[in-house]
Design a protein around this nucleic acid. Sequence first.
RNA 1: GCCCCCAUCGUCUAGCGGCCCAGGACGUCGCCCUCUCACGGCGAAAACACCGGUUCGAACCCGGUUGGGGGCGCCA
Length: 463
Amino acid sequence: MKIVTRFAPSPTGFLHIGGARTALFNWLLARHHGGTFRLRIEDTDRQRSTKEAIDAIVDGMKWLGLDWDAEVVFQFARAARHAEVAKELLAKGHAYLCYASPEELEEMRESQRAAGKPIRYDGRWRDRPVSDTRPNVPPVIRIKAPRSGETIVRDQVQGDVRFANDVLDDFILLRSDGTPTYMLSVVVDDFDMGVTHVVRGDDHLTNAARQLQIIEAMGWPIPTYAHLPLLHGEDGAKLSKRHGALGIHEYAGLGYLPEAMRNYLLRLGWSHGDDETISTEQAIEWFNLDNIGRSPARVDFKKLDNLNGHYLRQTSDETLADALGPLLDQRGTKVDDELRAKLIKAMPGLKERAKTLVELADAVYFLTARRPLDLDEKAKKLLTAEARAILKELKPVLAAAKWEAQTLDAAARSFAEHKGLKLGAVAQPLRASVTGRSTSPGIFDVLAVLGPAESLDRITDQI
RNA sequence: GCCCCCAUCGUCUAGCGGCCCAGGACGUCGCCCUCUCACGGCGAAAACACCGGUUCGAACCCGGUUGGGGGCGCCA
């Protein structure tokens, strides 16, 4: 059987981290089986759906590298077909017209609440004859759900989840204005699109039971369900605005790599023994529904940082230099060919010290800075009177050496030895004067990248 | 209130009745490497929510308690 999965977000906000994980799992499942992965925008809520949200979702998917097959399906455009199915259900006797007004229903719920009873539609129009109508009141179509027995959702993650049918009420299929509800639309679209595996958030588990009732009434095939435990924020509660509720594409701006994000998201609820760093290729090969955990997970950005650092170090110097372009541009530095060459040369030392592209951009200060350098506090403290005196003596020694990291290193070492100093006593002041910071890549590598003229001038500025 | 789901180190997790006085990873703390910071290496602290059962034997099975989460719309 050819597997078809889908990611079906409603465009009422951006694609957050939880949605991104759902999308990833669907994508992985499809790619693993050589199946099809579809994107469907559930825009039937006309009030809340926005073009911006659709763009944000599409951008987020693209950034994450989750490519979908065939064209995007917009659910609202299929409303006529959904209504048709509702009418069919009505004709078959699996649904009925209900003329109860929203106010009337609210009253009903109120009294149920007050009486401590379960809140659900009481079926007041269920068994009335078709001749029984209310003039000038447009009815809704409700499903005539079975009242006894149980509906079992056979879920790949949650196991068999049983719902007594008497706790599931006769929900609305078609609104009084003739538009379909989510419950109906999802089922019809999944059927029409040939979706075989429904992988989505846990919050849809009860819906699955209701959807099953529609599917059974229509005699359609039941898809395989997998309901993923929801993601929680770092504090254990909801995903906070601070971090978890960011749009996924905003992580790009924070300096994260898509492959790191994929790896991170994958391990949130899915595991493969003790494996932690899992490439996307490996993930496609290994992914399955069996290894999805049943308990909710919290997001932990420290781990994302660590993973991102790992993937940063794996990325080529050229790619990284180019990725820095836009970030440096924002800071007012244009990357020309000369700077690009320096970035690439310095990258091996730079990238193992950074966790994100933003940190990387911060760390290239010494390459882009103009003389005289702005020393930070720690650098200033390093440049004591003694330190400056050492630099004064060191400068001609360096100037006389062949300008390569290794020879510069050797020259500085023998200089320190003759003066009875530790290398650090020489290297730290040197670093402060040349980079304006107290930390940097190996100082002799820095010197080599900067070249003799610029380096010696920077030293001169401080003595 | 009713229904459903979940419960192993701070966090993500391995574990699917004996291999577990519980393993890995992130984070934390030491030490090593070292010109700084990182990277890397080594090591440490750190968990089976609780109570009953079942069993020769339970983190794993069953029941309950507690604690989290989700659902109960003419929203999706």
